[in-house]
């Protein structure tokens, strides 16, 4: 295809992606280097005939508005927002490292800082949900291949539901069931004989509930991809393994799993990207007291009509983007290498 024709075809799509994906990334970088103008205060003296005069501070709305209108981005602040307590908290970290009661104390106090709290949960969620969902999806796929053909359609339908349903809604459904007056929450209280057991009361239980939700939500994706992969396992290889005396598990271990291995890379890449942006379950579970994520921190800065913290949200967004880049780096490097090899060969 000629370059000119190619450009004509891709122009609308590329224009949309540049305008609404690339430019916003530039926009958050610029915004993160500025801070909003504070309200302009003025001293107003009110005098009454008998009480004398008092001065008080008032917000000068017109001055504030005109200042904000002249410089909508706010005042240039450099890295100030990045280093403050709600983000990288350099001063606080320095203080903690200088004066502490051992490593446990350091970890606990750093975890109390909002950004590191969000980062800790985001990473734990991403790196627990991803592998567990992959393994669970593999076993579901194996199970489905063991079901008679006529039942497979309905079984696949049922298995897809947790993935297809709106994340906010799926999380709400689980939230209502795990509450102390929901069926799972109440049953757990009976099972452990502990009427005070609330899944949302302790940080550990909150984390576990959210991660279990994540696995529930993501397993179907891994399942579907593995299921498609299982359809193409070469049957003669399996048969020769059987003739060589391999039992079922050995066949799975030495024939099926190697055949599916390339799919794992693909599933892992998609799951890492999607889990890293975890937000909806935290909103649905109202879990912010015990678990926040990077996306939630941004959402929290922006949600609501008044006093949106654009600079703070932008700084967290930039830090999140860096996180995504680090996450993608291995697979991007591999793609780049294979692309160069292909180029060298041709």
């Amino acid at each position: 295809m000629r370059t000119k024709v190619f450009l004509g075809f891709v122009a609308p799509s590329v224009a949309l992606m540049v305008l609404f994906i690339a430019l916003p990334i530039a926009s958050i970088v610029v915004q993160s280097l500025h801070v909003e103008h504070p309200r302009v205060l003025e001293e107003v003296e009110t005098c009454s005939p008998f009480g004398g005069c008092t001065t008080e501070l008032r917000v000068d709305t017109t001055a504030t508005d005109s200042l904000r209108e002249a410089e909508p981005l706010g005042r240039f602040a450099g890295l100030e927002t990045y280093l403050n307590r709600n983000h990288l908290a350099s001063a606080e970290i320095g203080a903690i490292l200088r004066d502490n009661d051992g490593p446990a104390d350091v970890v606990a106090r750093i975890y109390d800082l909002p950004f590191y709290k969000a980062l800790a949960f985001t990473l734990a969620y991403t790196f627990l949900v991803t592998p567990i969902a992959i393994v669970a999806g593999f076993f579901v796929a194996l199970g489905v291949t063991g079901v008679t053909k006529g039942l497979r359609g309905p079984v696949i339908f049922m298995s897809l539901l947790p993935y297809i349903v709106t994340p906010l809604i799926g999380a709400l459904i689980i939230y209502w069931m795990t509450g102390s007056d929901g069926i799972i929450g109440a049953t757990l209280q009976v099972l452990f004989d502990d009427p005070g057991l609330h899944l949302r009361a302790s940080p550990v239980l909150t984390w576990i509930t959210l991660i279990v939700y994540g696995i529930w939500h993501m397993t179907p994706f891994a399942f579907v991809v593995f299921y498609a992969g299982l359809q193409t396992v070469p049957s003669d290889t399996l048969e020769s393994a059987m003739i060589d005396g391999a039992n079922r598990w050995e066949q799975i271990r030495y024939v099926v799993i190697p055949h599916l291995a390339p799919l794992v890379t693909f599933i892992a890449l998609i799951l890492l990207m999607d889990n890293f942006r975890v937000l909806e379950p935290i909103v649905s579970f109202q879990a912010e007291a015990h678990a926040t994520s990077l996306s939630w921190a941004i959402y929290n800065d922006l949600y609501g009509q008044a006093d949106q913290l654009f600079a703070s949200a932008a700084a967290t967004s930039v830090l999140t983007t860096i996180g995504v880049a680090v996450l993608l780096m291995p697979s991007l490097l591999r793609t780049w290498r294979s692309f160069r090899e292909r180029g060298a060969r041709s």
């Binding site: 609404f20 916003p24 990334i25 981005l73 890293f276 990077l294 922006l302 983007t321 993608l328 991007l332």
Partner: peptide
């Protein structure tokens, strides 16, 4: 490039749109 864009958490983009 599209793959990298696919990885961007939507909320980071939204925080670039609002202002």
């Amino acid at each position: 490039g599209a793959l990298i864009f696919r990885a961007m958490p939507h909320i980071t983009l939204v925080s670039g749109y609002l202002l």
